[in-house]
Design a protein around this nucleic acid. Structure first.
Lengths: 338, 338
DNA sequence: CTGTTAGCGCTTTCAC
DNA sequence: GTGAAAGCGCTAACAG
């Protein structure tokens, strides 16, 4: 498994090409002041010997490592994986590599990882939260660009990218309204979550704009299927004429769908349901499948990565929170299958 | 955001402590041949100046980068996150950092990332698959230790760690038997998956050992809730006296539970259900919650990380596939809540 | 015990 | 155009 042979160095290549170390370096780095024929020879030799430059030596000189850190507390990977993929897209796979550090919700461990990343001279850090509530800033004293994804920083001087939950709430309602629904209720999770409040605000704003009253008050409790079931039962009891539900998460929607089925309401004909997250394992397996708002996290990751490079290139994005557009994925819970 | 000041180097520290560079280095690295008082002074200075050694320089000397690559195709992070956490545990957070590379199921991209990792001089590579079927080996020519986690390599010369699905199947059955169930059926996913076959084999072996026949044949089709629902309906129709079901995944179990409830069977009193994966978002939100077999992926990650270091230390693990013990998490689908 | 010296692999002046 | 030499930050001999 382990190959004993010492990795080939640039001076091996230079020797083989019959040039000096310095010339070989120039040839490799595509600098102008080297004869085309010489460059050919060096490149050929490098290729033949399967040379790859030692990044440690390059970092040492350049004081850049072509790596970025992804600092997260998202234990299940629900948010961090799409962001990672977006970042890889933006960086170009293999050109920049990503250190993934999981702080597990522990700020001591976070500090630890942060120090490690900084001492590794990463070129930037992407901080990925698992809620859209703002999180404590890492501070302004970090010697590399930092960008916050999903969970924005609480310091307006930082650069943060987060989904536009308010607009997403509007989208959910507008979809139901477009389907002709007029008796729409809202089931949500814990009131302490920014996501819950923002989505509810969007829902209410869209209804207000349409001059359609919300059925009852938004029901807040917890982010669980059980609450989805209970809340739905409560709603149907109080408002039997209800014809649309916006659930604030796919979990809540699943619970709601169960109750609707058990109480004999047809979805989407009697009651249409939309939700948020577009967590495939939940949304595509439910009966019926769930229309859900996707947060385009991969785009968000791409943008975060780009903002790091832009900062490095002296063209930093405006500080503050930037809200990302979301997208409704329509499934069986709002539109009947053919 | 960007701090202009050059990072402090060891020679800054040495100067400030009034010693030579070499002495400072020795003091920092805890070598014996340095006076205690001197060490104090150096350490204090380092601390005060917030010195962290430049890992590029260290790598250059040591020819080790204190990084490992995690190469995966697990887009949803279901398997890779626990493995990552285990690896971080074994490495000690921050002492070794992990490059996470997502190949997205594309072997070209995988090769790309592999080359990038090797040229970065990672100290080892952990390959994480998303099924327990064996996957193509990366080959024997990689100059660093490679270990396969979850999906074993198809080359017996490689080191692979994978969950013991056969034993897990036994465990699931033994649990049901211990509850007094004797009419046990098995619902599974796609027959082409090693996980499906291994779990089924374990189920049948445990039943055979107990002298209890399996109810019907194992039902293979697809890994979906819908199939779980349909398979359960089929089973109840053919074998109304059934009292236990082993579902090969939490998704299948959720489907099965739905059908059981709709057909008026009490779980776990009439029919007890166990499954595999212990995917929390599914298992803990179902009604009732699902008893499920956890694959201890964090342990698996820890072991994978350790095996890399052992190899580096000249003490490589035996090649071949090592099967990891699993653990049953008992919930409401097999034991009634108090 | 401490300091001097020589690299690790690479890039970069700056003479030739 | 090309190459000799200096040095990035650190560790490892080897002298003192």
């Amino acid at each position: 498994m382990t190959d004993a042979s010492r990795p080939v160095t640039l001076s091996d290549v230079a020797k083989s090409a019959g040039v000096s170390l310095a010339t070989a370096s120039k040839a490799m780095n595509g600098r102008e002041d080297v004869a085309e024929s010489t460059r050919r020879r060096v490149l050929d030799a490098a290729d033949r010997m399967d040379f790859t430059p030692n990044p440690a030596a390059q970092s040492l000189m350049a004081n850049r490592s072509r790596t970025v850190g992804l600092l997260t507390s998202d234990l299940v990977g629900r948010f961090v994986m799409p962001v990672l993929m977006g970042a890889e897209d933006a960086f170009g796979a293999g050109r920049v590599d990503v250190f993934l550090c999981d702080a597990r919700g522990d700020s001591v461990r976070e500090q630890h990882h942060l120090r490690a990343l900084v001492s590794r001279r990463v070129d930037g850090i992407i901080v990925v939260g698992s809620q859209t509530d703002s999180r404590p800033s890492l501070g302004q004293k970090i010697p590399v660009p930092v960008v916050y994804a999903y969970a924005p920083s609480d310091d307006p001087r930082d650069v943060s990218f987060t989904p536009d939950n308010r607009a997403a709430g509007r989208t959910a309602v507008e979809h139901l309204l477009a389907l002709g629904k007029r008796r729409i209720a809202h089931i949500s999770g814990e009131r302490s979550y920014a996501a819950a409040l923002d989505r509810a605000a969007g829902v209410q704003a869209a209804l207000a704009d349409a001059g359609v009253p919300l059925v009852g008050e938004p029901l807040f409790s917890e982010w669980s299927e059980q609450w989805g079931r209970d809340a739905m039962a409560l709603l149907l009891q109080r408002h039997p004429d209800l014809d649309g539900v916006v659930a604030a998460s796919d979990q809540l929607a699943r619970g709601a769908l169960e109750t609707l089925r058990e109480l004999g309401r047809d979805v989407p004909t009697d009651v249409a349901v939309t939700s948020f997250d577009n967590w495939e394992v939940l949304a595509t397996q439910a009966r019926p499948t769930i229309s859900s708002i996707d947060f385009n996290l991969q785009d968000l990751g791409r943008a975060a990565a780009r903002s790091i490079f832009d900062t490095l290139d002296g063209d930093p994005p405006a500080p503050g929170v930037r809200y990302f557009p979301t997208r409704l994925v329509i499934r069986g819970s709002s539109v009947a299958r053919r």
